[in-house]
């Protein structure tokens, strides 16, 4: 916002910092013309942001919880994503970034826990970014804001209050569309994004110590476009693939990765690729621990896949 005078931030209660204090202090630094509250109107917030972006501004719109993004779905899918294509390149809303907290938080139940990323990966014209930690969030968010395409940026809700990490000061960007090698290994490739990365890395440590299994862990960072080459390269080396996400398993983004990699690496695979994900249920209240793709479930799946 310091470098781009056209950048503006708005959403429900963002002036006070928002529910998760993400925008705390921005009003004082950039003033109420650029940091402002909106009515509780998700469809309106995104529509307004698309319009501002089409006029050359850099709107950073917040949807308070990813669970509330559905009223804005039409604006994202039909307006934002297709603006460039349907106007023959005359218009675009590339300045648009939609930030929204997603994922389990321990007790959020049906409407404060969902991971709706897969819906948006089905929409050519937008990018979908899901950082896995504070430094990653900074680097990817700055890239998302500067990217000349509309970006939906899912922030890991659980990590707002749990993550502690050194974050680079000053201008710091991480390229979109490139995966991160979180942990090198040789026996199986574990793929995830967002707050699931911590779970995958812990599972990798467990099987290394218990079974001597060496896991290569990849953080996708961006789901649309996703870094096929990085996963392909890794699976060609390890011969095994596990993808894990919190969203329900059926039609989750894990399915896309498994399908694409099975085709690309078919003759190199030593075991069927496996997905450890949320169940096909609404996000449960008291049974969140059962629903979640936990470390224990991943450890179990790694062991079975390596023994296959």
């Amino acid at each position: 916002m310091k470098d781009d005078s056209r950048a503006m931030l708005f959403g429900e209660d963002v002036v006070f910092g928002g529910v998760f204090r993400c925008s705390a202090g921005l009003l004082e630094r950039f003033g109420k013309e650029r940091v402002f509250n909106t009515p509780l109107s998700e469809q309106g917030i995104v529509g307004f942001a698309v319009g501002a972006a089409a006029m050359g501004y850099t709107p950073i719109a917040e949807i308070q919880f990813a669970d509330y993004i559905y009223p804005a779905f039409d604006q994202i899918v039909n307006e934002a994503a297709k603006y460039r294509y349907r106007s023959g390149g005359a218009f675009n809303c590339g300045g648009l970034t939609i930030r929204t907290p997603y994922g389990a938080v321990g007790h959020g139940a049906h409407y404060h826990s969902q991971s709706p990323e897969a819906f948006f990966t089905h929409v050519p014209g937008i990018k979908v970014v899901m950082p896995s930690g504070p430094a990653e969030a900074k680097g990817l968010l700055l890239s998302a804001i500067r990217d000349p395409n509309p970006v939906v940026f899912f922030e890991a809700k659980m990590m707002y209050r749990t993550a502690v990490e050194e974050v680079p000061t000053g201008d710091y960007t991480i390229p979109l569309g490139k995966a991160r090698l979180a942990r090198p290994g040789t026996d199986i490739t574990l793929v995830g994004w967002g707050q699931q990365m911590g779970v995958l890395e812990r599972a990798a440590s467990v099987v290394e110590q218990a079974d001597g299994i060496s896991c290569e862990v990849l953080d996708m960072r961006t789901l649309l476009p996703w870094d096929r080459e990085a996963v392909e390269q890794s699976v060609n080396k390890t011969g095994r693939l596990l993808v894990s996400h919190e969203a329900p398993i059926t039609s989750g983004f894990g399915a896309e990765i498994v399908a694409a990699i099975t085709k690309r690496c078919f003759l190199r695979l030593e075991a069927p690729p496996v997905r450890i994900c949320g169940y096909d249920t609404p996000f449960p209240l008291v049974y969140e621990p059962v629903y979640m793709p936990t470390e224990a479930k991943i450890v179990d799946a790694i062991q079975l896949t390596v023994k296959f």
């Binding site: 609404p282 049974y287 629903y291």
Partner: peptide, 26 residues
């Protein structure tokens, strides 16, 4: 008490579509 474990899969569809749950390992 908290709901029965089976409630996790109940009431999503009228019938459970053959769903099952399992413990933390296979």
């Amino acid at each position: 008490p908290p709901p029965e474990d089976s409630m996790l899969w109940a009431n999503i569809y009228k019938d459970t579509l053959g769903a099952h749950t399992r413990g933390l390992d296979s």
